[in-house]
Write a protein that binds this DNA or RNA. Structure first.
Lengths: 337, 337
DNA sequence: ATGAAAGCGCTAACAA
DNA sequence: TTGTTAGCGCTTTCAT
């Protein structure tokens, strides 16, 4: 069979006729204008009910130049998107906030199409604004999106401009605190497994590591990029072990990478934390699902998502919005360090 | 600051003027009509390039009564959506297929808003069709969606109708094969942890379990609902142990539930597979991330997603589409049974 | 191969 | 408070 034919949906014209009023009055009722008489209000409402009327979105947005839709742009592939609990948390936060509004969310897992479809979608006026969740130096299409609609970034933008809005976690302080904790526990040969240097979160956490070490007058340890994935973390761990001169502690810039590192350590017969102490970053569900459970820096990803949505909603309402929000991290001590 | 003002995007009218042709000709070029002279084609193309023109989606869809958008409806909460690798696989498949088309995907994690926003979005003509990924007896809003646009279901619909299109896995045969494997290995007291009975996948796998047992002349074992979550699986496992009369094998209808069951078994000091053999369902990444690794029924979720998207695209193209596709499962033997 | 003209269903001044 | 009147930017007959 082919497409089933459903009766054409009622139009505003039909509702107006049924209610014995003009299109404008129906429009007013639909859009919640106050200047409608109780009688008209009733008539229109019942006509809407009776005809099962739903305003046509295209027509509405063509006339009003608003779509009441927001693009959620994730410049990652689906594997990373679904594989990293960080996205689950932040998207849940965004979704929770948007659900309470009358906006809808259009998700773009955008690395798959190199961003082109996403860009023209946004530029075609299909959304009123965009939230960009994770982005890399190479994601230049983001700039064309930002030129078309208001954007709120998750994390400090790659090339920050004066008017960028974003919600970030204090990655610098987080990296510093994590490293400091290891120092305080008496460790002296401290390595780090970093996120990609093309991402601000990767850069900032590494910078925090450097600062803590410098402040304590300690030498820099091995620095390996784990790409924010479990496999990358495992590979980085292997490189560190292969280099000899084993560290006695490692600051791993995400829990997922820490999981990878942990498995390599276990395979190498090294005990955590006795031989090598590990501290992660995120406090995502993986932190408690590995053995030993991870000491880690908690970051409030759900709240970050909510705040991002909040910020964009403010912007779209034409209200002044705080341009930057920085959320704090918090040390969570468990068994790995 | 408030919304930044970007120059109003170029309209078809402006492109037409710049190219020295009529709106119609520009429209023809944009929509790939053949009846355009090479000269006009060139002029229009360069004007489009020059003016950075992107057609307005609302206007286009209002005039053409097509949106080139597809709703992906997931009647689950975000926790389950991100927590179950099954969704990762099926959504990846859908996304992969849609990416290759000129449609875009609008994701609705719909249990959060009770489906009302989703329903009116769909009924407002915002999408041409919908893919419904996981649905329960209680999700009645799906029917209103199906009344408005063509729908392809993932899994047999709750209330199947003559004209429903869907892509399912052969859950009946899968449940049967899993149970049969346990029987073949010499197990005689076989319990099962099921998915929700409100979901066809839950019902069908249980039915397969019953059939295999009956065919072998074996009595039915404990049957507990694990709700397709890890926690639910753990709770179900606890109930089975608490009931006494320990089974020697369990067919667990999803890998995630098996993970929960495994942790309870470990805590109870029971060895897998020596004391209790476990077979899962899915062959998702969790199957190899637990100890012992899971013997399980592999289901081709990515392919299922691709096929669903394919089917809907066929329908939207007005072509005849196969109404039902059933994909086979496959036994994967590892360490847990 | 091309253009003119008529809408698609709605919102938003403006008048009344 | 209500209705009238113009569009919003595009597609799509229908002529030519």
């Amino acid at each position: 069979m082919t497409i089933e034919s459903t009766p054409a949906p009622a139009t505003i014209e039909e509702v107006a006729a049924a209610a014995g009023v003009s299109r404008s009055t129906v429009s007013r009722v639909v859009n919640g204008s106050t200047s409608v008489s109780p009688a008209a209000l009733d008539a229109v409402r019942s006509a809407i009910e009776r005809l099962n009327y739903v305003p046509n979105r295209a027509a509405r947005s063509l006339a009003s130049r608003q779509t009441h839709a927001i693009a959620l742009v994730v410049p990652e592939d689906t594997t990373r998107f679904f594989g990293d609990p960080f996205f689950a948390a932040i998207v849940s936060g965004i979704n929770a906030r948007i659900s309470r509004s009358d906006y809808v969310l259009n998700l773009f897992i955008a690395s798959d199409d190199a961003g082109d479809k996403t860009t023209s979608y946004v530029r075609s006026g299909a959304v009123d604004g965009a939230i960009v969740v994770s982005h890399h130096t190479s994601d230049t299409f983001i700039e064309r999106i930002a030129a078309a609609v208001p954007v709120v970034y998750g994390g400090r933008p790659v090339r920050e401009r004066e008017r960028d809005h974003y919600v970030d976690v204090d990655n610098l302080a987080g990296g510093r605190a994590a490293t400091q904790y290891l120092i305080d526990r008496g460790h002296r040969r401290i390595a780090t497994i970093t996120g990609p240097r093309t991402m601000p979160a990767g850069v900032d956490r590494l910078e925090g590591y450097h600062e803590a070490l410098a402040a304590a007058g300690l030498p820099e340890g091995a620095v390996e990029d784990g790409g924010f994935t479990a496999d990358g973390g495992a590979a980085a761990m292997r490189r560190i072990l292969a280099a000899g001169d084993r560290p006695d502690a490692i600051f791993v810039a995400s829990d997922l990478m820490a999981r990878g590192a942990l498995s390599v350590l276990a395979a190498a017969g090294l005990r955590v934390p006795e031989d090598v102490a590990i501290i992660g970053f995120d406090d995502s569900p993986v932190a408690t699902s590995v053995f030993p459970s991870l000491t880690t820096m908690r970051q409030p990803s759900f709240a970050q998502g909510e705040r991002m949505a909040d910020m964009l909603l403010e912007l779209l309402a034409g209200r002044d919005a705080e341009r930057i929000t920085i959320l704090e991290t918090e040390l969570v001590v468990r068994d790995s360090a």
